[in-house]
């Protein structure tokens, strides 16, 4: 088993189910999950699932992509504020980069994220798509 497949497997909860940690004292949610709240040092937390919709806070366009994403370029990487206030970064898909705008409503969709090689393990997770329905 390669490092890639074991790392991918360890991250299933956040990658597949959008699980985040919400700390009891501060009420703050962190994604990916953390063991300790960096502000309070608190370890008491609950695992919550993030909402699947939000708005773009800012974005950048990747035109010269690493080889594993070459067939998708150009594409946007966006920082999105989800409806619960959590901000996360993700790749945009199913959209022309010229249409991507700050404030655009987006939805998380389960997608293939990358592959190790033609023979390697497939890595899945979420990307943002325009929220058109």
């Amino acid at each position: 088993m390669s490092m890639f497949s074991s790392r991918s497997w360890r991250e299933y909860p956040q990658r597949y189910r959008m699980e985040a940690s919400r700390f009891k004292k501060s009420g703050k949610t962190y994604y990916p999950p953390r063991d300790i709240d960096p502000e309070t040092g608190d370890t008491a937390q609950e695992i919550v699932r993030l909402p699947d919709t939000g708005k773009i806070v800012t974005y950048t366009v990747i035109r010269v992509a690493p080889s594993q994403w070459g067939d998708l370029s150009p594409y946007a990487l966006a920082i999105v504020e989800l409806t619960d206030g959590t901000r996360m970064m993700g790749q945009m898909t199913d959209v022309d980069v010229e249409e991507v705008k700050i404030g655009m409503e987006v939805r998380l969709e389960f997608r293939r994220i990358q592959t190790e090689s033609h023979e390697g393990v497939l890595s899945y997770g979420h990307k943002f798509v325009p929220n058109w329905f």
Binding site: D71, L72, T93, D94, E109, F110, R111, R112, I113, L122, Y124, K127
Partner: peptide, 13 residues
């Protein structure tokens, strides 16, 4: 299907 969509991703959605 675009390159980041396959039978598994369609099934999950």
């Amino acid at each position: 299907p675009p390159p980041d969509m396959d039978t598994i991703t369609l099934s999950v959605e």
